[in-house]
């Protein structure tokens, strides 16, 4: 029992951290605790959360996916070009997602079959994806999409924005998949001890390909949402997601060594990062400073998380 209580220390600490941030922001700025701003924060967090979902699955297998930002940009740009060229929305969206999934699948093959270190394979994929996006865009920005497409990014169902609903569904689906299905348990087993999982009949190769493919898919979905929301697609749109994505996962308590963690943690991690940015904006800190503050917050948060875990054991 005592041990179970201890296991809750880190998650409780994370939530306390969020609460403290909110209180601090409320005191510092009266605009923080307004419905509009709260919804705004959540909507901003959606992209990071979605990227973090696939990434969590990858990191649970003790892997890493450095290509998420590149894939996000590539999918955004591909879909944008296709929409511009007059393709029907569903076709453009499907092709875009297929591209993201394909890059993820290739990552999976490189890691699972060819056995490259995950970090090398996905870092290479990042540069290829960004290179392809560069080719597609020729240095331009594409903007002005049909409003039915933009609805996913800016629309509302009742008082709640569409992206938040979409993200909530995805989070629930991923959490169910990872914690309540046989394949999900295989992912945890693989991350806890790859050799033991293999000896126990887990298809190490297939599972590896699966998680990277999922990560490609979620990065792609985020890419679509982002183009829909900004009503624009550009080359550098994926850039912040690499570090912030990984940081959300790790800050959410998922261990980079694999086998430990949960997507609900990732959601909290993403919200913390978004709150920090939101706070900086509300306080009028110039955007150039955000990079420094975020770097510091991430390093500190990962450090605290490691300490919490050490202490809980």
């Amino acid at each position: 029992m005592n041990r179970n209580v201890r296991a809750l220390i880190a998650p409780i600490f994370r939530l306390t951290f969020v609460a403290a941030l909110c209180i601090a922001l409320t005191i510092m700025n009266e605009n923080f605790l307004t419905w509009t701003n709260i919804i705004n924060v959540l909507r901003q967090a959606t992209l990071l959360v979605i990227v973090g979902l696939g990434l969590t699955a990858v990191i649970l297998t003790a892997g890493i996916d450095l290509s998420v930002g590149g894939v996000l940009a590539l999918v955004g740009c591909t879909t944008a070009q296709l929409l511009k060229s007059g393709l029907p929305i569903p076709v453009a969206v499907l092709i875009g997602l297929a591209v993201g999934t394909a890059v993820g699948f290739l990552n999976g093959v490189m890691v699972g079959v060819i056995k490259l270190p995950p970090f090398v394979a996905t870092y290479g994929a990042k540069w290829i994806a960004e290179g392809l996006a560069l080719l597609l865009m020729q240095g331009q920005i594409i903007f002005g999409f049909p409003s039915s497409y933009r609805w996913v990014g800016v629309g509302y169902v009742g008082p709640i924005p569409v992206p938040i609903i979409l993200t909530a569904i995805l989070v629930l689906a991923f959490d169910f998949f990872l914690t309540k299905t046989v394949v999900g348990r295989d992912i945890y087993a693989l991350g806890s001890n790859r050799d033991a999982a293999y000896y126990s009949g887990v298809s190490v190769c297939k599972i590896t390909i699966l998680v990277y493919t999922l990560s490609g898919l979620t990065a792609g979905i985020a890419g679509l949402l982002m183009t829909a929301r900004l009503d624009a697609a550009e080359l550098g749109m994926g850039e912040p997601f690499l570090m912030q994505g990984i940081a959300s996962v790790v800050m959410g308590g998922t261990s980079l060594l694999g086998g430990e963690g949960r997507v609900t943690g990732t959601v909290i991690g993403a919200i913390i990062l978004t709150l920090v940015v939101n706070g900086l904006n509300l306080m009028g800190v110039p955007a150039l400073w955000h990079q420094i503050v975020l770097g510091a917050v991430i390093l500190t948060a990962v450090f605290i998380d490691l300490q919490m875990k050490k202490w809980a054991n």
């Binding site: 348990r185 945890y188 087993a189 806890s192 001890n193 033991a196 086998g259």
Partner: peptide, 20 residues
């Protein structure tokens, strides 16, 4: 090395080869 996921609890280790 080949038998256990040391950081996992007893119950998940017990069914590691028989979940399906």
């Amino acid at each position: 090395r080949f038998g256990l996921a040391l950081k996992s609890p007893v119950h998940w280790n017990t069914v590691m080869a028989s979940l399906r």
